[in-house]
Design a protein around this nucleic acid. Structure first.
Length: 338
DNA sequence: AAGCCATGCAACCGCGGCAGC
DNA sequence: GGCTGCCGCGGTTGCATGGCT
């Protein structure tokens, strides 16, 4: 079964794009916008299928694309968002301005996945590979359940935001030629502007404040599947109560769940000092990443030694991050309230 | 210098979701 | 409500490049 290939017609070119083709595509989109991708190749005089044109535009020709090496902050954001969203590259990409989902996906597969593996962390679950987490007491499990519930919320919210971004882009597509450069370079999309790379740290801080640092905290994704089994908890009650009025909530038709869309302002209380705390956190997490990076090309064993140093006494990946959060937070008064 | 291998990245492919009819 | 076509996403492939032997 399956759909017939969109461009199986003879005469349609495949493979690498030539500068001439790029120029044609660019010129056409700048003048007319892309409109229907299906019809674009003919109008633009290109012997390509619409799909190929869309891909070339979104992944390469778009003026807002930032190329080159990923910064450590971007890496951290990717890792953290991947822990929440899994392989939701488009959703992750909405939180990394100027990066495409394809680029992020490639970077994950070629760099970050390997690095996490080298750190002894399963890149899929973001848990230590030979994880032998103690079952802990009831409180610990409860905290884990609460926090995983939170992670589920955050994950759903991020996806909803990503969806809004996509819809917004669709709406603006028709007028793209009038604002091409400005729109893409300034990230005028409100949803996209709201969501800075540091927002994911809110979740980490929340985990921290919910006793995760007490040890044995699982990664969000690792518990997502079980989160649905968690009943209404104090935490989630607070979450709903504190999420502002009902206008802050929107119904996500795909996820069939109610999701706070006003970003961290409603989901987690944020304060100006959070940025400072994040900066401090980032510095320490950067050191952690760098220590791995510096051994990236070295022997596995030497690299492992550094990793062991970073994760001594069996503390897992998330504990380390959470400890960094704690250490970076001189006062938890500014932390999310629940 | 040549061959081999690993890596990175651009591009393709197939599928699912959604909207219009 | 079912069908069809389009778009976008995620997985995968294949080529280019650089490093090593």
């Amino acid at each position: 079964m399956g759909r017939a290939p969109c461009c199986d017609k003879a005469g349609l070119k495949k493979g690498p794009w030539t500068p001439e083709e790029d120029q044609k595509l660019l010129a056409f989109i700048e003048e007319h916008g892309h409109g229907s991708w299906r019809a674009l190749p003919v109008k633009a005089g290109l012997q390509r299928c619409g799909k190929s044109c869309r891909l070339r535009w979104t992944n390469y020709l778009r003026p807002d694309i930032k190329r080159g090496k990923f910064s450590l902050q971007e890496e951290q954001t990717i890792i953290q968002l991947h822990a929440l969203l899994g392989n939701g590259w488009s959703a992750i990409a909405t939180h990394l301005p100027k990066r495409t989902d394809n680029e992020i996906k490639n970077y994950w597969n070629t760099h970050l996945k390997k690095r996490l593996a080298k750190m002894g962390i399963d890149p899929v679950t973001h848990k230590p590979k030979n994880d032998a987490l103690p079952s802990g007491d009831g409180n610990c499990n409860k905290s884990a359940a609460n926090l995983s519930h939170m992670a589920q919320w955050e994950s759903a919210r991020l996806e909803a935001e990503a969806r809004l971004v996509r819809q917004s882009k669709l709406r603006s597509a028709s007028s793209i030629q009038a604002q091409t450069n400005q729109e893409f370079t300034s990230t005028s999309n409100p949803a996209q502007r709201q969501v800075g790379p540091t927002r994911c740290l809110d979740v980490l801080k929340a985990w921290s404040n919910n006793g995760a640092a007490a040890g044995g905290m699982e990664s969000p994704t690792s518990t997502l599947s079980s989160a649905a089994n968690v009943g209404s908890s104090n935490f989630t009650d607070h979450l709903v109560n504190n999420s502002g009025n009902s206008s802050d909530l929107t119904r996500d038709e795909n996820n069939k769940s109610t999701i706070p869309l006003t970003s961290s302002s409603s989901f987690l209380s944020s304060s100006s000092s959070l940025h400072d705390e994040n900066a401090s956190f980032m510095e320490k997490f950067t050191d952690l990443l760098l220590s791995v990076e510096q051994n990236h090309h070295g022997e596995d064993e030497s690299g492992r030694a550094v990793i062991d140093g970073c994760f001594e006494d069996g503390k897992n990946y998330w504990d380390s991050i959470l400890h960094l959060v704690n250490d970076s937070s001189p006062s938890d008064h500014h932390s999310p309230e629940f």
